[in-house]
Design a protein around this nucleic acid. Structure first.
Lengths: 104, 104
DNA sequence: GTATTTTTGGACAAATTTAGTCCAAATGGA
DNA sequence: TCCATTTGGACTAAATTTGTCCAAAAATAC
């Protein structure tokens, strides 16, 4: 089922891609021009990747940039809302606002 | 119609409340312990209020804290997503993730 | 129309957050 | 055991946030 795939964080997806290609942190971190420990933390969600890094990952592993960016953005949204009592209500209102701003 | 009310930003709501009470920036800013220029910027969306300030506003004007916090949070979400091509998709995924994390 | 109050804009500063390096310790094969 | 990989944490630099201060603009009162 495809919906399960969406539940993972962008970090988990990066780790899955890297392991599927059998590459060590060292190699991918070098491509991203960051230390291995940072990449390790990104993959485990202890740090957030930035947009450029996410795009670079998509390029490196030849996957659809759109899908990875959507994961990245949704992770940032979740970050803003975790531990918030009215998170779901806020998301609903955000959707209304977004529709309002982007129509016409 | 009630949905229109949700379209305004928390800043716009603060300004509406302040003007409805006939108070100058000076008075409300003093209560929040910030400069008038900051409050002016918050009301016009040039700066973001923080959680405590939003709660203080709700208390000062005697309105439901929940409603104002929801506006505040949704504004932060919108901030993350404006100018993003796949903003709507990201919101959808964020909803799935939130449901997943908060169930059980 | 001038005086007064309110609001806004921008230069600046302090404090906090973010993003990274570096290295030592832990983990995991062969 | 040896070696490569991964992780944790102390530390630093850069960027962002959050605010002050004050002058200019706009609105209001008289």
């Amino acid at each position: 089922m495809e919906s399960v795939q969406n539940i993972v964080s962008v970090g988990q997806q990066i780790r899955a891609l890297r392991e599927a290609h059998g590459l060590p942190l060292r190699k991918v971190a070098a491509e991203l021009d960051i230390d291995t420990s940072i990449l390790s933390k990104i993959e485990r969600g202890h740090r957030q990747a930035n947009r450029q890094q996410v795009c670079a990952i998509a390029r490196i592993f030849g996957v659809d940039e759109k899908e990875l960016i959507i994961q990245y953005l949704s992770d940032k949204v979740i970050d803003e809302l975790t531990n918030e009592e009215w998170a779901e209500d806020a998301l609903k209102v955000a959707e209304e606002k977004l529709k309002y701003y982007t129509r016409k």
